[in-house]
Amino acid sequence: MQRKFFNGTDAVWLAFLAALALAPLVPAFAANSFRMHVMILILLFAGMSQAWNIIGGYCGQVSFGHSVFFGIGAYGAGMAVVTYGGTPWPGVIIGMVLAAAVAVVISYPCFKLSGHYFAIATFAIVEIFNRGFLVWDWVGGALGLDYPLIEEGLANLMWHDSKTEYYYAALAIFIVTFGIVRWLEGHRFGYYMRAVREGQETAESLGVNSTAVKLAAMSLSAALAALCGAFFVQYNLRVDPPMVMSLDMSMKFVLITILGGSGTLAGPLLGAAVLIPLQEYTRAFWGGLGGGVDLIIFGLLIIIMVVKQPAGMIGILRSAGKFFSGKKSAERGGEAHVSS
């Protein structure tokens, strides 16, 4: 079914974005800095997981290496501010370009691998980058980069007192990533990606250059991941290798997308809206007890969610929608799972 330029779902999205944009104006919400913090992280990780979704969900290449690109973006901004004492923006741009270039160089040989071999190759790449950055003095080594306090404002992408500005910056990233994916869904390239996911040989036989499509999707995904990484470091004001370039970080992007519903526009948002509050509230309630009680509960919840609803939350929403409207969901294009 041809996707229309503007349809009812898009109207719902616009209304939703408007509500998000107005949210900080509600005093009861904006005054609670923990709630703002959770919202910022939801928006950031929804954007980051959407970046992963381009290659992992739409193109079907399940990469566990995205924390490398996230980390390159984070280090781009971090180096620009800490090492060179300037504004983060040139670092953000360089980080995005570099992440896309690194993505092409390391993905080209990896795309020859299939299934679990590809997944494990991406694990290996994360570990190589992680350990490499730990001993690389130019980027701060194991100590990482600690931000100095500099003047607040958009030029430095840093604010000291309120989280409202960070909220709007995260919202901007969210809109950029979701906008790009929405545009891709109706664009020729989006169809190429989905064709490669559903059957690479079939797609090739119809004249799709699958290697070029996968490389382009990967570099776009990596550049957006670097953008999110740069925001992440500007928000945390420090960066070290285990914080950004770790398997746990990569797994977070994958978990959010898959649990939300991979290969769908709303999936990463749904996943982030459930997983991030779970993570933050379990940490707030039980993290103080020490001894990882929050992570025990988080792990247990992941198991339960995967076992009960492996198609993702979008699957729950669709069956609920079917229940209320009585329509068959087949014509909606059931693309709620990854086939790798």
Partner: peptide
């Protein structure tokens, strides 16, 4: 419960299990 479901389901579920076991021992 993950057999016959998307291939990543088992991997993600065992990732959750790994997190659970590791922090249980930590605790």
């Amino acid at each position: 419960y993950t057999i016959g479901k998307p291939p990543l389901a088992a991997l993600l579920a065992t990732f959750g299990l790994a997190m659970l076991l590791k922090n249980l021992c930590l605790n």
